[in-house]
């Protein structure tokens, strides 16, 4: 196990330098003064954060510090929670996605999401992937749809494993395969941004390593934001890291810098395991 981790870290650091500069010069998403509250309880305090394109941004921090809440702002999933109120601007492609004119349903087709627990629909593997293209009318013909499904599964590194049983139910796959199925399902809608909320926390180390490889592959095409409670994972897969604590953004910067040379005392305490 030890060896795969160091291995994958090497492959990642090898590729980072170029993307990093590229991503930083063009923030894909610009969050300005985000505040979130659930009823009277405030969960996010005035967070401003640029998110670069074609790279992985990791959100780390102790449990309950608002990582998921923040992530869910980026595709307005918080709209589905009655008590949740979000203020502030999130600029994506020159538009503020918190603008009342923006249709969250359309926004979510541009910003895909992968959840903590693999949650395939109780449908066949094929129908799971085809779901997004179908509701958004992306495929004109059956051949288009077949092609899209194959492409998405290939990108998620699952094609070889499932190509002979596309009609068997999605939940018949293993946990790690299910999570890759969910990633493929998100990709099928052709998003520009992919949000992942602790995508490996329900998986074993081998499956985790596969997902991490996949994330590294995906960042060539997408802007990825990943929440993780594992600092090793953040160090392995991300180029940028933001450290949250009690609903505030304590520090953000290049992953290398955050992990080797944090500016804030709280960040250092957290990554050295003194709390959290």
């Amino acid at each position: 196990m030890e060896s795969t981790i160091t291995e994958s870290r090497e492959t990642i650091t090898a590729g980072t330098s170029m993307d990093e500069t590229e991503g930083l010069t063009y923030p894909r998403i610009e969050c300005k003064n985000i505040n979130v509250s659930y009823g009277d309880k405030r969960a996010i305090f005035d967070i401003s954060l640029p998110i670069p394109d074609r790279s992985v941004t990791a959100l780390i921090g102790p449990s309950g510090c608002g990582k998921s809440t923040f992530l869910r702002c980026l595709n307005r999933m918080n709209d589905t929670i009655e008590s949740c109120k979000v203020t502030g601007e999130i600029i994506m492609d020159g538009e503020n996605i918190n603008d009342p004119d923006i249709d969250p349903v359309l926004l979510r087709s541009r910003v895909g999401m992968v959840f903590q627990k693999p949650n395939p629909f109780p449908k066949s593997i094929f129908d799971n992937i085809a779901y997004g293209p179908r509701i958004h009318g992306l495929a004109a013909t059956r051949e288009d749809l077949d092609e899209m499904v194959e492409k998405s599964l290939r990108r998620a590194g699952l094609w070889e494993e499932v190509k002979d049983r596309l009609s068997s139910p999605g939940n018949s796959l293993s946990g790690g395969q299910q999570q890759r199925l969910c990633i493929a399902r998100a990709i099928a809608v052709r998003p520009e941004v992919i949000l992942m909320d602790e995508p490996c926390s329900a998986l074993d180390p081998v499956a985790t390593a596969r997902i991490e490889e996949l994330i590294d592959e995906l960042r060539k095409r997408y802007c990825i934001v990943i929440v993780t409670h594992s600092m090793q994972q953040a160090a392995r897969v991300s180029q940028r890291t933001a450290f949250f604590h009690l609903g505030e953004l304590v520090e953000m910067g290049d992953t290398d810098q955050i992990f080797t040379n944090p500016r804030e005392r709280r960040t250092e305490d957290y990554i050295t395991g003194r709390f959290g």
Partner: peptide, 15 residues
């Protein structure tokens, strides 16, 4: 029905 299934659909842009 698990909330995660609904979330999955909403996150795909389903109404």
């Amino acid at each position: 029905v698990p909330q995660t299934l609904r979330d999955a659909a909403y996150a795909m842009g389903a109404t």
